[in-house]
Every structure is written in structure tokens, then in C-alpha cells.
Design a protein around this nucleic acid. Structure first.
Length: 584
RNA sequence: GGCCCCGUAGCUCAGGGGAUAGAGCGACCGCCUCCUAAGCGGUAGGUCACAGGUUCGAAUCCUGUCGGGGCCGCCA
């Protein structure tokens, strides 16, 4: 098997080859940089199948007018059998029309490559760490975590598809004060399990989900922890409770179809010298010092008083102010273990770090980038993806949850009501940094308003065609279709659909380069729309129906339909959504 | 006060150096003896917040202004 089909890079290679030939022929000066030469789908289909900006981007460095370059480039391209026509247009675009054989070859490639179609070697096997969710282990996951979980997982799948070696990682915040609160809360439930009145005082976690933790503590410890001072039981209860909470969180993630490769513990960084080592490394770079921060301008906290702290000189790497790594009492701030944690990720040899954080952590980005830049000597980029809020709706009305009453919407609630597939798709129908509306009714609606349904429906129609064809005795398994003569595909509408399929590998690379899985969801919507359009044209033009009288003709057209199904499946695979075979 | 994100059709949003700026909803007009009409086609609708700048070319990049949201030492 040859290398993977990517029609846009093939045609770009053709263009660059023609430019090389022009250079050799003295039509272009030697030594030009062709890296800005692009081959793209034109915005207006009337402009052809593909367009290149080569003449425009080379005009200035070549000292020639775009027109002169384009006029010489066009016939060179047109002499290739893949190019039906090459026309100069607009300010110097070269619009290309591809020959029917190219489109048939594209469909053939999709059918042959199957689940691999669109895979890319863009990533070159580089190691990427995607850290996401990282919810505090103090309770079940709630709706606020869902979007980050889906985004991180889809991003990981996307990067894997684009040729990276991906690690999905969860950082357990089990080292701070909030897990002590968890322990105290669980202890009260333990007392309750032993028939005592629990004291769920203000500041403790009131949720019912801790009742089983209390019972489990009773099963393990009996009555032995009762009437003991906190110092006797805090560590044990804390470990026990965080362990159980992490189990709950793993199950919550599994319900969403998310599996982590690595769970890293904040607590494990303490007492191992790792924090000290990371800080010492920074100190060796002259980036740690004792100093006093200025109060924030404009809105000084009432209780502000200047205190000397140990500070990280993050301003040396683009931050606005230096950041404390030690509190005034000498203990570490939350920032210190995060430094050690990112140092650890760098030392594990990742070439790229990605942190998926809630948008409320935006103020945290610069200092983390400063840390990673310093500790990796600028070798490892850190990309922080901020996830905006999800606003819940029910039937168009805002769905308010009250934290006071403890009635917060959990991840489980969302998955149980909407299903994991629908939840995942909808969460990816917005760019990560845009707020997203999630309406429990609308996401389940079966209409074109609902992109999940619309894409799934297209796939169901493909399967419907295959089913009907089989009933009619037409062989249409993948192996047969991959070997079928596609020459009956001849209509421009069919080639247009093939053109959409041709965009898939390119889309994957663009999405992966930008760490933007939502582009996959939008692409699938466009592909589905193109397919539904062709489907309906079969109403007017019987020649455009997939199932024909002639079985060889049927197989070619079914091959196109199946190719659409392949790409939808591959795309949904990146989103982590299961394609449906049939609508019900 | 500072920093980050956002501002595109009546509404919800794509596009993030290229041509006459797109989609869905809503409005209006059409399409089922035919593989699923749960769909499709068409019409109407825009100063891409505003003002400068860079560029052969800006919704896109830079600066500033206005508007919305988020964050800003001893919580994570």
C-alpha cells in the first residue's frame, strides 16, 4: 500500500514541482521560498475544485507580476493528467479543475484505507501530554467538568489520529486543604453510620454521596475511630475518602467514554523532594528570590499587608508580576506543586504539553507558560486550552442549579438524560473558548436543528442504502466496493461530494495543528449536508440514486455512499461518538 | 488599575492573511406514485463593534477606543 491519500498535499506537490521546473527553466529566480504556497478549496465552488495562491505570494520575491507567473504556471499544471483545467482569476489565483479520474481515485482510496483514511503523520510520533479534568477528588463530577472532559478526550483522539503519541493525564489535587475538609465530612458520615448524630457544620461537604464513604469507613474501622482526636484519624480517613472519590470519578469518566492513561497525585509530590528540586532548579537559574509583592492596583483587598514571600520571577518569561511559591508562613502555595508537576512532565520527555483548564483559570496561564519555558529551556511548548462555561437549559428555559440546596447537576445526570454520544457531540459544537448552551430537550430533538441527529441520520442513510442493496442481491461489502469500477460516477454532484471527502485529511491536520477538535464536528455537519443534498437530488434525477437497475452501476454509486459512511465514522471516532446504523 | 477571552445576518454560531464573508434557526416560496420528506432546493436578510496602522490584499495581524464575561498575595 502506498502512503495515505491526501489530495490537497498531492496537488500542492504538483504545484511545487511545476515551480521547481520553472526555476530550472529560468522563469523564476533561484532560491525562492515556496513555503507560503498553499493549495486550498476555493470559497466559491464556481471557482473550481482547488485554488493556489502561488503566483501572488511569489510575485514580490520573484520581482514579477502575479499575472506573469500564473500564465506560465497554468499550462505546466494543465499538462498533468489530474488537472482538467487551470485558469488565472481574480488578483492572481490559479483555479484548478480536477479530472473525473481524480475523484474516482479519491473514492477508491477512501474505500481502501477505511478507518485509516485521514490519518496523518503530521505529528511525527512526537510525545504529547494532554492534562484534563483534574477535578478535586472531593465528590462526583458535575456538569462543569463535562465539557473539559469531552474536549480533552477528543483532543487526545485527534492528536493520535494526526500522528502524535498521546498521553491522557489527570492531576489529582489531593494535597490541599480541601481534602482535609473531605476527610472531616466523611468522618461525620462515619459517625452517622455508627448511629451517632453527624455534625455537618458549615464548611463541610453536605452531599449524600459521602454516606457510603461513612459506611465503608465503619466496615473497615468499626468503632475504633470514634471519640479520637482528629490528629489520630485525619490522614487515614483522608486517604480512604479520596481513594473512594477517585473511584467515583473514574466511573463518571467511564460513563462519558473517557479513560485516562496516567493519574498523577499532587500529594505524592510532597515529601519526596520533588517540589524542592524543581524550585532549586529555578533558583539555579536566578528565578527564585525573597521579596514583597505590590498590592493589586485598583482593588486592594481590605486585609492587605505587605509580607515577604518566596517568589518566582515569572516576569522573566512574559508574566505580568512575579508569583509566590511560598506563603508568608513558609509553606508552599498551590503553585509550587504545580511547578514540580510540570517539571515532572518535562522530565518524562514530552515534546508538547497541553493543559485543559476552566476559563476561570485564565489568569494562571502566563505563569505556567513561564514555568515550562524556564524548566525546559524553551524546548517544550505549553498550550493551555481554556474551556468556557456550559449554560444548561430545559425546553428553552435556563436550568438553574442551586449550590445552596446542594442540588447541583452531576455528570451522571447529564449522561443519563442525554446519553454519552449526544453529550459528547454537543459539547464539541462550539469552540472551546466560547460559552455553550446545552438544552436537555433540544439535544435530543430529531431534526436538522440538531447537528448530532443530522450527522447520525446521514450515516443511517448510508447504512440504509447498503441494507437495501444487500436485499437486492448486490454485493457491497467493503472488500468488493474497494475493487469496484467507479467509472459510473460521472455527475458533478457526485464529484462535489467526493471533493468534500477529499477535504477530510486536510481538516484533520488543521484541527490538530490548532488543537481544535470542534472543527471535526463542523466538518461532519458540512459533509452530512452535502450527502443529504445528493440524496435528495435522486428524487428528481434517477441517475443520482445510489441503487440502480444495473448492478455494476449500483456498486459504484454505493461505493461513494459507503465512502461517506467511512469518513463520518472516522470523524465520529475522533469525537468519541458511536455512529448509529439506523434511526429509531 | 492590570491581564485574558469575546463582539460577524433578527437569533445561535463557523471562518482567524486572499476572490462577491458562510451555515443553522426564524420569515417567505417551492419539492414526497421515487433507497427514510426525521430530508432537500430557492428568496429575503451584513459598515464582520468603532477608529487608525501593516500588507499587493485585513472579518482575520498590530495599536487604541467602546461594550460583555473571567481573573488578579496568604483557595485550588
Amino acid at each position: 500500500m502506498g502512503r495515505a491519500m491526501n489530495l490537497f498535499s498531492d496537488i500542492r506537490a504538483l504545484v511545487v514541482g511545476a515551480l521547481d521546473a520553472m526555476t530550472a527553466a529560468g522563469e523564476l529566480p533561484a532560491g525562492l521560498d515556496f513555503s507560503a504556497v498553499a493549495v486550498e478549496p476555493p470559497r466559491d465552488p464556481a471557482h473550481g475544485d482547488m485554488a493556489t495562491n502561488a503566483a501572488m505570494v511569489l510575485a514580490k520575491p520573484a520581482g514579477l507580476s502575479p499575472r506573469v507567473i500564473a500564465d506560465k504556471l497554468a499550462p505546466r499544471l494543465a499538462s498533468d493528467p489530474r488537472i482538467a483545467s487551470a485558469e488565472v482569476a481574480g488578483p492572481g489565483f490559479l483555479n484548478l479543475r480536477l479530472s473525473p479520474a481524480v475523484w474516482r481515485g479519491l473514492v477508491h482510496a477512501v474505500l481502501t484505507e477505511g478507518a485509516a483514511y485521514g490519518r496523518s503523520d503530521l505529528g511525527q510520533g512526537t510525545k504529547v501530554n494532554v492534562e484534563f479534568v483534574s477535578a478535586n477528588p472531593t465528590g462526583p463530577m458535575h456538569v462543569g467538568h463535562v465539557r473539559g472532559a469531552v474536549f480533552g478526550d477528543a483532543l487526545a483522539r485527534l492528536l493520535d489520529f494526526a500522528g502524535h503519541q498521546v498521553t491522557r493525564e489527570y492531576y489529582i489535587n489531593d494535597g490541599g486543604a480541601q481534602v482535609d475538609v473531605l476527610a472531616r465530612s466523611a468522618y461525620e458520615r462515619y459517625r452517622e453510620a455508627n448511629g451517632l448524630e453527624p455534625d455537618i457544620r458549615a464548611g463541610l461537604y453536605p452531599g449524600d454521596y459521602l454516606i457510603p464513604v461513612g459506611e465503608a469507613l465503619k466496615a473497615k474501622y468499626g468503632t475504633s475511630l470514634l471519640d479520637k482526636p482528629e490528629s489520630d484519624w485525619l490522614v487515614d480517613v483522608r486517604n480512604f475518602a479520596t481513594g473512594m472519590m477517585m473511584q467515583v470519578i473514574r466511573e463518571d469518566l467511564a460513563a462519558l467514554g473517557v479513560t485516562m492513561d496516567v493519574y498523577s497525585s499532587e500529594k505524592a509530590l510532597y515529601g519526596t523532594g520533588k517540589i524542592e528540586a524543581a524550585i532549586d532548579t529555578l533558583r539555579g537559574m536566578g528565578l527564585i528570590y525573597e521579596g514583597v509583592l505590590e498590592p493589586p492596583k485598583g482593588k486592594t483587598p481590605d486585609d492587605w499587608e505587605p509580607r515577604e514571600q518566596t517568589l518566582f520571577r515569572s516576569t522573566a518569561h512574559g508574566d505580568d508580576v512575579d508569583r509566590p511559591v511560598k506563603k508568608s508562613d513558609g509553606s508552599w502555595t498551590y503553585f509550587a506543586p504545580d511547578i514540580a508537576y510540570h517539571y515532572d512532565k518535562i522530565q518524562r520527555g514530552f515534546d508538547l504539553l497541553i493543559d485543559v483548564l476552566g476559563a476561570d483559570h485564565g489568569g494562571y496561564v502566563k505563569r505556567m507558560k513561564a514555568v515550562v519555558a524556564a524548566l525546559s529551556n524553551g524546548r517544550v511548548p505549553l498550550d493551555v486550552k481554556l474551556i468556557q462555561l456550559v449554560k444548561l437549559f430545559k425546553n428553552g428555559e435556563p436550568f438553574k442549579m442551586s449550590k445552596r440546596a446542594g442540588t447541583f447537576v452531576t455528570l451522571r445526570d447529564v449522561v443519563e438524560q442525554a446519553g454519552a454520544d449526544v453529550t459528547r457531540f454537543v459539547m464539541l459544537t462550539r469552540k472551546n473558548d466560547m460559552a455553550l448552551d446545552f438544552d436537555f430537550d433540544k439535544v435530543l430533538e430529531q431534526s436538522k436543528d440538531n447537528p448530532v441527529f443530522y450527522v447520525q441520520y446521514a450515516n443511517a442513510r448510508v447504512n440504509s442504502v447498503l441494507r437495501k442493496a444487500r436485499e437486492a442481491g448486490i454485493a457491497c461489502d467493503d472488500a468488493t466496493l474497494a475493487g469496484v469500477d467507479l467509472s459510473p460516477l460521472s455527475h458533478t454532484a457526485e464529484f462535489a461530494l467526493a471533493g468534500k471527502l477529499a477535504e477530510w485529511p486536510r481538516l484533520v491536520e488543521i484541527a490538530a495543528r490548532n488543537n481544535e477538535p470542534h472543527r471535526v464536528a463542523f466538518y461532519l455537519y458540512e459533509l452530512a449536508s452535502e450527502f443529504h443534498g445528493l440524496w435528495n437530488r435522486g428524487n428528481d434525477d434517477p441517475d443520482l440514486r445510489f441503487i440502480q437497475e444495473d448492478s455494476a452501476k449500483s456498486q459504484a454509486k454505493i461505493g461513494l455512499a459507503r465512502a461517506v459512511g467511512v469518513v463520518i465514522s472516522n470523524g465520529l471516532g475522533i469525537l468519541g461518538v458511536t455512529p448509529v446504523e439506523e434511526m429509531r
